[in-house]
């Protein structure tokens, strides 16, 4: 499984790319692999306030549907609208083209408590 070293991770298999107060969020390679063919993604409107572990959307594959959980607290400032028409990009490129939302964090320091790549890898091994 691809676990880029420069990202942070949640135990619900979201990744976070941190840039100052902005957090770009998507689902991990492991998550997309478990889901299989993604066919529908529902994402929120920009401007919504979101709390850590709150549902911000859903992702549905042929096999199953799952909630998407926010790894951080803040305001949703950007949404990847392209995913509605090209949900398969989450399978093909989960860490780049398949990003889902950008959140302006209330307190960027909180994000340091998320899992590092090394910790997430260890967590995946426990899950297996």
């Amino acid at each position: 499984m691809n676990v880029p070293p420069d990202l942070r991770y949640s135990k619900s298999h979201e990744w976070v790319r941190l840039e100052n107060e902005l957090a770009t969020i998507g689902i991990t390679d492991y998550a997309q692999d478990q889901l299989g063919d993604v066919v529908y993604i529902e994402l929120p409107e920009t401007g919504r306030l979101i709390h850590q572990e709150e549902v911000f959307g859903s992702i549905e594959s042929v096999k199953a549907v799952s909630d998407l959980l926010s790894p951080v607290n803040g305001e949703i400032v950007e949404v990847n609208e392209d995913l509605a028409d090209t949900p398969e990009t989450v399978n093909e490129d989960p860490y780049a083209v398949g990003w889902m939302i950008i959140v302006r964090m209330d307190d960027p320091a909180e994000a340091q408590e998320l899992l590092s790549a090394e910790e997430y890898r260890a967590f995946l091994e426990e899950e297996e």
Binding site: V39, Y40, E42, E60, V62, V65, A84
Partner: peptide, 10 residues
Amino acid sequence: LAMEERAIPR
């Protein structure tokens, strides 16, 4: 049933 919204019936 053919869905008119983006959701898979289970």
